[in-house]
Design a protein around this nucleic acid. Structure first.
Lengths: 144, 144
DNA sequence: ATAAATAAGATATTTAATGTCCTATATACA
DNA sequence: TGTATATAGGACATTAAATATCTTATTTAT
């Protein structure tokens, strides 16, 4: 597992949208500026988030992005895994074929456990909680 | 955090040595073959392990590697962190400078917690346990 | 002294992430 | 219905890191 920059950006984008609320549309530009994400890169990330059913994208003038679910219904894990795929801590667990002995391997078991634990921790947190308290996004409690 | 191939190899190498026992010297070639590690790559990895005080390296004919501590005294976490540095799950936590709001950020807190949990899990397991039961290394319970 | 075994550093090779650019498409509004 | 605006989607460039290999140097047993 490695949270890529794309992953961090996706979280920021979703936290920003969550703060606005379900169904509230926000322009790409606004998100890019306020959440400090390169605009072109955000476009990519948004496409992934849309494909995963987390946000809706509207084209044209007054276009933008909006959350499709309630922030409570989206976990941090969900956002992360949309961007980087299912979380694994090592190849051995992620691609069992590369490891001959994974079935009985004691090392393997530890990584499996660690992985499950990590996914549980990230799965317990939802976007509502994250957007209520302070977050990475610099003061976005501004009227507009 | 991403367990690199070098990390996986280091674990295999250490588990192999642990199985032999503290102070028992094994040639690089033997380890490379039995633990399925590219020999040249193993040399690099061994240098890191030696620098960290985990193994001793002996040059010359009848040279090789040996464990400097009892297997019980070395945790999986220790081996991993020698190879990939202190474990972090994301940039934000690893390099706080890149994130302005890390102090009060709610997302940051989750990653911190997840990180601590992961390190605890890996820290609880030692090489003795790992080498006693079956592991990644294909049947090395062979006399020589 | 010689041969064997590893050290250390330089240098490919590969892979992935990151970021940018260009053309296409959708849509609000005049 | 046409035009301007905003995003889509794919191609491409750049950077960075991991992985692996090769060459020369050093150590040491005999």
């Amino acid at each position: 597992m490695r949270l890529t920059r794309a992953g961090e950006y996706a979280i920021r984008c979703m936290v920003y949208l969550a703060h606005k609320g379900k169904g509230i549309q926000v322009s790409k530009q606004e998100i890019a500026e306020r959440a400090d994400i390169p605009a072109h890169f955000l476009a990519k990330i948004a496409q992934d988030l849309a494909r995963a059913g987390l946000i809706a994208i509207k084209q044209g003038p007054k276009g933008g992005y909006s959350m499709l679910k309630n922030p409570e219904e989206i976990s941090l894990l969900e956002v992360v895994e949309v961007m980087i795929g299912e979380i694994f801590l090592n190849d051995c667990v992620g691609r069992p074929r590369t490891c001959k002995a994974s079935k009985q391997c004691s090392v393997h078991k530890v990584w499996e456990e660690a992985r499950a634990q990590l996914r549980r921790t990230l799965g317990k947190v939802n976007l509502a909680e994250l957007s209520e308290s302070d977050s990475c996004i610099p003061v976005f409690l501004v009227h507009n």
